[in-house]
């Protein structure tokens, strides 16, 4: 598997990373090498194998529908880069929700 600079740009868009042209140039061969290495997994015949998400898989872990104390608004907003009207402020949103 080798990734072209354009593919690297596409992945960077999905990952929302602003890469410089230099980074794209550097990353293309690096990512290709890593993927080339990782592709060894395809040598394993595993068609009928169930994938594992968790090594030890408990199931049906739930909590009762009982309120717990929330954090204070000040605590939650304390880390925010920009706050306005007790809300997290961001510059104008261009894209619609996915």
């Amino acid at each position: 598997m080798s990734l072209s600079p354009d593919e690297v740009r596409h992945v960077a868009r999905l990952a929302r990373l602003a890469l410089t042209d230099e980074e794209v140039t550097d990353l293309a061969p690096q990512l290709s090498a890593i993927l080339g290495y990782a592709e060894q997994v395809s040598e394993v015949a595993a068609d009928d194998v169930t994938p594992t998400v968790h090594p030890l898989a408990p199931s049906d872990v739930t909590r009762p529908d009982e309120p717990r104390p929330s954090l204070s608004r000040d605590d939650v907003l304390a880390g925010a880069p920009q706050v306005e009207q007790d809300r997290f402020a961001v510059p104008r949103i261009v894209a619609e929700e996915g």
Partner: peptide, 12 residues
């Protein structure tokens, strides 16, 4: 080919 296959290798 990638994530799913790797998760199967994990089972093995």
């Amino acid at each position: 080919a990638y994530y799913l296959q790797a998760s199967k290798v994990r089972t093995l």
